[in-house]
Nucleic acid binder design. Structure first.
Lengths: 113, 113
DNA sequence: GTATGATACCTTGCCTAACAAGGTATGGTG
DNA sequence: CACCATACCTTGTTAGGCAAGGTATCATAC
C-alpha cells in the first residue's frame, strides 16, 4: 500500500508517530511498523529505512531508551520506551501537531475538516 | 512567529496549501504569504525561500499559470491561477490529505483529534 | 533437505524539500 | 535621506525519507 504521496505527507510526522506509540507502551521497531499499518488500515506504510535511523537518532538525543528482551521464538527484540525527556517531548509535539492541524483547517477551509 | 517546529511539520504541506489557496481565487506570491499567516493566526509563517521555488516548480509542472498585472502602486504583481491539471491535482491532494489526517488520528488516538 | 517467507535487526548513499541569507526594485513615511 | 513595506527572485546548505542492500532465526512448504 505504498503510494507516491506517502512520502510528501509523511515527512516530519515520523517523530510524532514514534513518540505517540511509545506513550502507550514500550514497543520494538518491527512492532511499530505493523501497528502503524494496522491502525491506519494500510494507509501508512512506515519504511524500515526511515524508522531505524529515526529511533537511533532519538535515542542519542535522550528521548528514548532501549532494552533487549528475549522472545519465545526468533531473535531477541529491542524494546524502546520513553525517558522523562521523551515524555515531555511527546506532550509538546502533540500540542504542536494539534495547532498545525487547526491552522491547516483554517487555510484549507472545509477541505481540511 | 517562526518556531523550530514549523519546518518539520510544514514539510510536504506547502503544495496542498498553494493548491487550496488558488482554488478560491488567483493570488500573487506575497499575498499567499500574508494569507497563510493571517488565516492561521500566525501559526504558519511560510518562507519566501520555500514559496517561490515551489511556485516555479508547479508552474513548470503545468499545474499553475502566471500572469503579470499592474498594480496602483509599486511593482507589478505576478498572479497565479490553477490550470485544469492543477484543479484536478488540488482535488486529489485534498483527498489524500484527508486520508492522512484520519490515519494520523487513528494512530495518535485522541491526540490527533 | 532446501527454498521461501515471516520475523527482527541494521547501514549506506541518493534525492529533494525547506530554509537561511542574500539580492533587486518601487513607493510611501518620518 | 533613511528606512520600511511591498514585491519579485536565487544560491547553497542541511536534514529527513527512502531504496536497496545486508545479517540472523525459525516455521512452513515442496
Amino acid at each position: 500500500m505504498v503510494t507516491a504521496y506517502d512520502r510528501e505527507f509523511l515527512t516530519g510526522t515520523v517523530g510524532v508517530l514514534i513518540l505517540s506509540l511509545l506513550t502507550e507502551r514500550a514497543m520494538y521497531a518491527y512492532e511499530m511498523l505493523q501497528e502503524a499499518e494496522r491502525r491506519s488500515a494500510g494507509a501508512f506504510h512506515l519504511k524500515e529505512g526511515t524508522l531505524y535511523p529515526a529511533l537511533h537518532h532519538m535515542e542519542r538525543a535522550g528521548l528514548l531508551k532501549a532494552a533487549w528482551r528475549e522472545s519465545d521464538a526468533g531473535r531477541p527484540r529491542k524494546y524502546y520506551s520513553l525517558t522523562a525527556k521523551g515524555r515531555r517531548q511527546a506532550e509538546s509535539k502533540r500540542r504542536q501537531w494539534k495547532s498545525i492541524l487547526s491552522a491547516m483547517r483554517a487555510i484549507l477551509g472545509d477541505a481540511g475538516a
